[in-house]
Design a protein around this nucleic acid. Structure first.
Length: 641
RNA sequence: GGGGCGGUAGCUCAAUUGGUUAGAGUACCGGACUGUCGAUCCGGUGGUUGCGGGUUCGAGUCCCGUCCGCCUCGCCA
């Protein structure tokens, strides 16, 4: 029998099309004997196959399918076609109206989109051309019996891939149960399931234990804003929901668990973004008796495994880059290595010019001038675009983004006049070729670096320099332990206060904390951070020292982290770990830039659930029990209205 | 907290400079059709233009306020 390669059951074909392989048959589990089937109740047609699995091999078999009416095509007196959908796929059902009972004719003609039905009939080769768009397109189910399991009201939205891309996300969130019926959303849910399954299997094979940690914990200083929960039994006392199980997993190492895994929910009461929700999931891991390289090797192996299993891609060895290099060359701690446009520091050259913008910047503490060479940019970038960048870059507090073209005749337009004195040196420093354009930022190191890093990413997008289908992984290491904040005049942890310094850096904790590098590591893919972790401090005196540097007093340290300091005293092994952002991993694996797509029931940017209309008010009595009173601002918002 | 974009029929959109009864596709309802497959053809129902106020002879359109959604800066150790 000839099978069109485009509709075969070949796994790779579906992978190429971006579809799942057909779901395995659902096993019809026998009814548990403890459940009584009521006598006399009409018997429901029971499914024998899914809507995704019938092939030419099944021709002649009598089967029952259950699902939703995806579309119907009423051909008049003779025929009705139904595309029946379940999560596994679509199968065409045809009712030959001359061959079926009257009530099937009546009910069949009344079927509408999204009605839920069961159909029993015979599989046959299609009388007309196969539908090559469907894996089941060679066959059709000739319906003999029809059971309408549930008529639907005309649905507010349809799970139709042709339309879905355009439907307001607000509607999709409100009617999430309809939106999730879409093939694309089912594919995402399935992928997410496979990620967690592969995760558990991989780490099980490496002797990790899955252990749950509490949700009701204690608010700690630093970090994100906590969600808090009032305590009924302790008036005036509050629990906090975990931002991560960080301290518990360290305690589990001290408790001798050796290797820990948890797929856990984390909660941070901060404003969401396209790739960020207040409530999100982590794959949380910790290991004992390891150094940085051990963790990176284990976790790199895991990511390698995921990409291999889910995408069939060999991501190869993951390169390692220092934080310093990332910041200097790419202006960001999560560099996108899919394209060039590296950043150059031209502060020394800039000092030789008469350009006031450069001089003003260099006069600032840590003032720098940064530049990017844009190959062919002289023609590709219009004046309007460069003016746009100059304006846009103010978002990041930079003053602007001056440019200059380099041609056969030398520097032209923009700040050509100012760079004339350093023409040769600038040309050499940036490697300029005729037809290029150079774009600059000048400010303090942190502002100029961030601004040009953002500009680099924007330029790559605008100039279409980002190749499709490439995976550029990189480990970023050697982060500074601390970051000095001018406003509050104190150090903050770049990672978190439990991160250990690199083994050769301990002395700097005393001599110059600002120079001390940590044993942290972030895993970055295509400019997106998908995981981060560190070797932890496992000696109490080091932990105390770090708290001191962070300006956390002994009293506060004891009050907030006394349990950790105690635990570290009683035999803490060296340990370290990592947490992967599960949502972001899935986003990459299914190719979306919207985190709400990979969460079954996500929240909006204002933290509302449009389906269940959360948050909502509670009774005064409920508040009273919790020793809590509402103190409302003048206009209190109600979500979803 | 700041900036930007958006909200018109169930859904996706249109509506000229402020001017007739707010239109189209789709869904839905009715009809036709025996091989369709995003079916097709004919007819029809369907509107608090997010909400409140204002300007005007007249507001979907202009102004003020407000709510909701998205993007973003801050924030997210």
């Amino acid at each position: 029998m000839s099978v069109d390669p485009g509709i075969g059951s070949n796994r790779d074909v579906f992978a190429r099309l971006g579809y799942d392989p057909p779901f395995a048959r659902f096993v019809q589990s026998p009814c548990p004997s403890s459940i009584n089937v009521r006598e006399g109740s009409p018997k429901m047609l029971k499914r024998t196959h899914t809507c995704g699995e019938l092939r030419a091999d099944h021709v002649g078999q009598t089967v029952t399918l259950c699902g939703w009416v995806n579309t119907y095509r009423d051909q008049g007196k003779g025929l009705i076609f139904i595309d029946l959908r379940d999560r596994a796929g679509l199968t065409q059902v045809v009712f030959d109206l001359e061959d079926v009972a009257d009530d099937v004719v009546t009910q069949g003609r009344a079927l509408r989109r999204e009605d839920v039905i069961a159909v029993r009939g015979t599989v046959r080769q299609r009388a007309s051309e196969p539908n090559r768009k469907l894996p089941t397109g060679e066959i059709e189910l000739v319906g003999a019996e029809l059971e309408v399991l549930n008529k639907t009201e005309s649905p507010p939205i349809l799970p139709d891939e042709h339309e879905a891309a355009k439907i307001d996300e607000e509607k999709r969130l409100r009617y999430r149960y309809i939106d999730l019926r879409r093939k694309r959303m089912q594919h995402i849910l399935h992928t997410r399931h496979r990620v967690t399954k592969l995760t558990r299997d991989y780490f099980d094979q490496h002797d990790f234990l899955e252990i749950e940690t509490p949700l009701l914990i204690k608010s700690t200083p630093e970090g994100a804003r906590d969600f808090i929960v009032p305590s009924r039994l302790y008036p005036g006392q509050w629990y906090a929901l975990p931002q991560s199980p960080q301290l518990f997993k360290q305690i589990l190492m001290i408790a001798g668990c050796d290797r820990y895994l948890q797929i856990c929910r984390c909660l941070r009461d901060e404003d969401p973004r396209a790739d960020r929700q207040a409530e999100f999931s982590q794959i949380d891991l910790e290991m004992s008796f390891v150094d940085r390289d051990d963790v990176m090797e284990m976790m790199g192996g895991f990511i390698h495994h995921l990409w291999k299993e889910l995408l069939g891609t060999d991501i190869g060895e993951i390169p390692v880059m220092s934080w310093k290099t990332a910041m200097e060359k790419y202006g960001i701690d999560r560099p996108d290595l899919r394209f060039g446009l590296e950043v150059h520091d031209i502060s020394e050259l800039a000092a030789k010019t008469d350009f006031k913008v450069f001089h003003d910047a260099l006069a600032k503490p840590n003032g720098v001038v940064k530049a990017i060479r844009i190959p062919g940019g002289a023609e590709k970038l219009t004046r309007k675009m460069t003016d746009g960048y100059s304006e846009w870059i103010k978002t990041f507090k930079a003053g602007g983004a001056p440019t200059v073209k380099f041609t056969d005749k030398g520097f032209e337009t923009g700040i050509a006049r100012f760079v004339e004195p350093i023409a040769e040196e600038l040309k050499a420093a940036l490697g300029l070729e005729p037809g290029d354009l150079a774009i600059f930022t000048a400010d303090t190191w942190s502002i100029a670096t961030k601004a040009i890093g953002e500009l680099r990413n924007r330029l790559a997008r605008d100039l279409d320099l980002i190749p499709e289908g490439e995976w550029k992984f990189v480990w970023v290491i050697d982060f500074p332990m601390f970051e000095w904040d001018e406003e509050t005049q104190r150090y903050y942890s770049l990672h978190h206060p439990f991160t250990a310094p690199n083994p050769d850096q301990f002395e700097l904790l005393d001599s110059d904390p600002s120079k001390c590098l940590s044993a942290g590591y972030d895993l970055v893919v295509n400019g997106s951070e998908i995981g981060g972790g560190s070797i932890r401090i496992h000696r109490p005196e080091v932990q105390k020292k770090v708290f001191t540097i962070l300006g956390i007093s002994d009293e506060e340290a004891t009050e907030k982290f006394g349990f950790l300091l105690d635990a570290l005293k009683y035999g803490a092994p060296p340990h370290g770990g990592i947490a992967f952002g599960l949502d972001r991993l899935v986003m990459h694996l299914v190719g979306t830039d919207n985190i709400r797509d990979v969460i079954a029931f996500p929240k909006t940017q204002a933290g509302a659930d449009l389906m269940i209309q959360a948050p909502g008010p509670v009774d005064d009595a409920q508040l009273e029990e919790l020793h809590v009173r509402n103190v409302l601002p003048e206009a209190a918002a109600t979500p979803g209205t």
